[in-house]
Design a binder for these strands. Structure first.
Lengths: 187, 187
DNA sequence: TTTGTTTCGGGACGATCGTTCCGGTAGTTT
DNA sequence: AAACTACCGGAACGATCGTCCCGAAACAAA
C-alpha cells in the first residue's frame, strides 16, 4: 500500500507555525514590531512560550516569516487597486479612494503593520527580496511605456497611506478622491 | 547689578539635553528605534546612564523630543525640494531627483530614521501634532488651486523615498529623473 | 561663608527579555 | 512490539531592560 497522506505530525507542526505567524501579525497590528516577543506571540496564539523557539530558530526568523506571509497579501491588495484603476475608467479613482479610506480606517492597524515590516526590510537585507518581490511583479504587469506613470501611481499610493496614518481622524474616501483623481489623470 | 546672563547650570543642562537628542537620532539612524535604550543613548553621548532619566522623565519623552527636533529638519528639507521644483522650471525635476538620490544614498540612515519616527507618530497620538505640523505648514504655502497637485507631489516624494529604501543599491538621480519629471508635469 | 538649587553619576532593584535544557507525549516506521 | 522521530511544554539561566535611590559636586543666591 502506497503512502499517500503526509506525516500527521508535520501537518500539525505546519499548522502551528502558521498560527504563530498570524498571532505575530496581530501583535504587530496592535502594538507594533516592538511588541513582538516570544512570550507575547505565544500568549496571543495560546501556546507555551517555547513553541516559538521550536518552530522558528530565532525571533528574527519569526519576523522574516511574518513579512513574507504579509507581502503576499499586500501584493494581491495592490493588484486589486490597479485592476480597479485601469478597468473602470472614471469610476476607477472612486474605487481606489474607497480602498484607501478602508486601509486607513477599519484596517488601519494592518496598514501600520505593513509599513513597519516594510521599514524593517529596509534595515535587514535578508528581508528585502520578499518586500520587493510583489513590487517587481506588479511593475512587470504593465506595458513598458506606462511604466513611469505606474511607478508614480504606486509611489502616490504609498505616500497617501503613510500621511493618512498620522491623521487623528482617518480621511474619508471623499477627501481622498480629488488627489487620487489627479494621480490617475493621464498626461 | 541686573542679572543678564541665564543660570549657567541651566545652560549646561539644556546643552546636555540637546546632546542626548542628537545621540538618540544617531542611534536610530544606525540601529533603528528598537536600538534606543537609556544605556545605548548614554553611551553614544558619552554620559552616564542616569543622565537620560534625569533630563527626560521616560524613554518615551526622549523619543518625543527627538521626533520634534527631527520634524523641524524634515520641514526645511522638503521646503528646499518644493522651492527647487517651483522656481527652476524644467531644471526643477533634475534637482529634486538629485535630492532624492542623496536622501537614499549618503543620507540613507537619516531617511530611515525619519520614517521610523513617522510611523511611531502613527501609533502614539501625542506625537502626531509634531509630525503633522510641518506638513500643514508646507500645504498652507501653496495657492489654493494648486493644493491637490501639491498633495500629490508630497505623496509621490514619500512613496519614492520609502520604495527606494528597500533597494539593494540606492537609485541614482538619473533613474529617479523620469518619475520626478512625470510627477511634476502639470495637467 | 552659609544656604539652597540644579546637575551629576555610581549602584541596585525588580521585571522582562531571548534562549536553552530536558523530560514527556504523540505519531511513524521497522 | 520496539525503535525512532517530531512535537510539546515546564523550568530556569544569564543578560539586559527601565527606573529609582541617594550622596557628591557644581553653581547661584543670601
Amino acid at each position: 500500500m502506497v503512502k499517500l497522506q503526509t506525516d500527521g505530525r508535520k501537518a500539525r507542526g505546519e499548522k502551528r507555525r502558521a498560527e504563530l505567524i498570524e498571532a505575530t501579525l496581530r501583535i504587530i497590528e496592535r502594538d507594533g514590531v516592538a511588541g513582538v516577543t516570544h512570550r507575547t506571540v505565544a500568549a496571543e496564539a495560546g501556546v507555551p512560550t517555547t513553541s516559538t523557539t521550536y518552530h522558528f530558530s530565532s525571533l528574527d526568523d519569526l519576523l522574516v516569516a511574518t513579512l513574507i506571509s504579509c507581502a503576499r497579501d499586500m501584493a494581491t491588495e495592490v493588484y486589486w487597486m490597479i485592476d480597479r484603476a485601469r478597468s473602470r475608467g472614471s469610476r476607477g479613482a472612486e474605487e481606489v479612494a474607497g480602498l484607501l479610506a478602508e486601509a486607513l480606517g477599519p484596517r488601519r492597524g494592518r496598514t501600520m503593520a505593513e509599513y513597519e515590516l516594510y521599514l524593517l526590510a529596509a534595515r535587514k537585507p535578508e528581508l528585502r527580496p520578499a518586500a520587493r518581490r510583489w513590487l517587481d511583479v506588479l511593475t512587470s504587469m504593465v506595458r513598458h511605456d506606462d511604466e513611469v506613470a505606474f511607478r508614480v501611481f504606486l509611489a502616490g499610493i504609498d505616500g497617501l497611506l503613510i500621511q493618512g496614518l498620522i491623521d487623528d481622524e482617518p480621511p474619508s474616501a471623499e477627501e481622498l478622491r480629488p488627489v487620487v483623481d489627479y494621480l490617475l489623470k493621464p498626461r
